[in-house]
Simulated assay, not measured.
Amino acid sequence: MFLSHRAAAAARVIGTVGAAAALSIGAADTALACSISDFSAAAVCDAGKGVIRVTDKDASGTPATVRLYMQLSMPGGERLVDTKTIEHPTAQGVSVDLIPLDWYAGETFRVHVTAGGKVDDDIQPMTVVADETCKSSGPSSPAPATPSAHPSSASSATPTTPPSPAQSSGAAAVPGASSAPSPAGGGSGLAETGADSGTTVIAGIAAALVVWRRML
């Protein structure tokens, strides 16, 4: 009978220790289990480019796949824009950058996570692009050129276009018109010379006739 009490006590001790060990193992497994709370997402600026950065702090190291959905203006509309895989997450955190199609203030993204059959859920809340995100890192627009109030005389003067060779040759081929009036009746110097020579011939014939009469 005494041995039975000792055996019963030993059994109770062993049972208590075993239960405590089982609880400890279960708590450890629960602590290492992958869950959606291990994931976070944020709209950040990376070298002047907007990205959705997803961080996985899963201590169990379960590989995870994250998908980025852009919310459209139509009710319930969305579009898958990027997918990345986190191969070896750690308790310290491993991040991947998902690239959106565009980037403007108020744009909203849904990030969905699947990991080892343990997680199939969205990161809450949805990620929204803030007004100041990447605002200072984007390329600056060049200032518009201001026209000068006093343009230089060289730029305002109209350049003189030299005449083309065809115009020059045409101008040289046409003689200039004489400014002196033409003689009346269209006469010329040759016509006047002809009139003088005719008078001289008539005078010579008359003189010859006078000499001939005297000889008779």
Rank of each mutant, 00 (worst) to 15 (best):
A28M: 06
A64G: 01
M1F: 14
T30W: 08
D121W: 02
A195T: 15
A41K: 04
I86M: 00
G50P: 07
G185E: 11
A180G: 02
F2E: 15
S137M: 13
E132W: 09
A31P: 02
S156T: 10
P75T: 05
D82N: 08
I99W: 02
S137Q: 12
Y104D: 03
L80A: 05
G116L: 05
S164Y: 01
A9F: 12
H5I: 11
F109G: 01
S156A: 09
S35Q: 07
W103I: 00
A191V: 15
P125R: 13
D58G: 09
M74F: 08
C134T: 06
P159E: 00
G77V: 09
L72D: 05
Y104N: 03
G186A: 12
D97G: 08
G185F: 11
P63R: 06
D131K: 12
W103L: 01
T55V: 14
A20P: 03
P75Q: 03
F109Y: 15
E107D: 15
G185I: 05
F39R: 05
P75K: 04
A22T: 12
T62L: 14
Q167G: 12
A8N: 07
A154K: 10
L190F: 10
A47W: 06
F109R: 04
C45V: 10
P125I: 08
D121C: 02
S168L: 14
D82G: 11
A11R: 12
